[in-house]
Amino acid sequence: MPAAGVKRFAARATGALTLPPVLAGCDAPLSTLAPAGPVAREIAWLWWAMLGGAAVLTLLVLVLLAMAFGPPRKVAARRWTHGLGLGLSLPVLAVTLAAGLWVGERILPRDDGALEIEVHAVQWSWAFTAPGPDGPVTTRDRLILPAGAPVDLIITSGDVIHSFWVPKLGGKMDAIPGRANRLRLQADAPGTLAGQCAEFCGLGHAVMRFEVEVVDPADWENALRAAADDGDAADD
């Protein structure tokens, strides 16, 4: 329908005019820069900090380069190789490493009896098994999470290597045959998020996606039960 097409184009064009496209994109469903949970938030913070540092350092190098285009100068070799080479890089890298480790430790799974949901990946779909009130409930391509509580995902694979990733909640974790990997995530508030396979896994890789439904903790068991009744549940 051309009319609808024009309308859509107009809407997009005005959106592009009013909002820089960069910022508009940040809030996209798979954006790591629009965190919907503490883990993703910590990492996003890390990113913005590193981006700022990287911009400053790039600028520094470019200014030094520009200044080189002039008459020859007497320079002390050690000031460049040791002073700048080591003196600048070592502290910057040490701070970066410390920040990374600090964030990394904070977002690790802990042994605190958090809810565990099994994630089983096969070419090219996801099965999520949660401990429901009436026994385990399995949903396909749809993960139901309680808001505000840490959840540990136990990630396995039935064939090749896949990778579980909900960008708005946090980092990815591979699903590897013969292994069970643990990933902790937490969602802030009820809503719908998107997830996808991040490790190339063959023909269906691009469409190996899933939905994350975050519900109020009080509604979680009902939501699971409903999902089971829905026929959304897997046959197995």
């Binding site: 030094l64 070799a77 080591l86 070592l90 490493l97 480790l101």
Partner: peptide
Amino acid sequence: FSAASLAVAVPTVVQVFAWIGTMWQGRP
């Protein structure tokens, strides 16, 4: 491995500044 991956940047940075210093010393 994270620390090692960051450490490997150091010799590269040393070279980059040696090159820029060389350019300061001469007339590019």
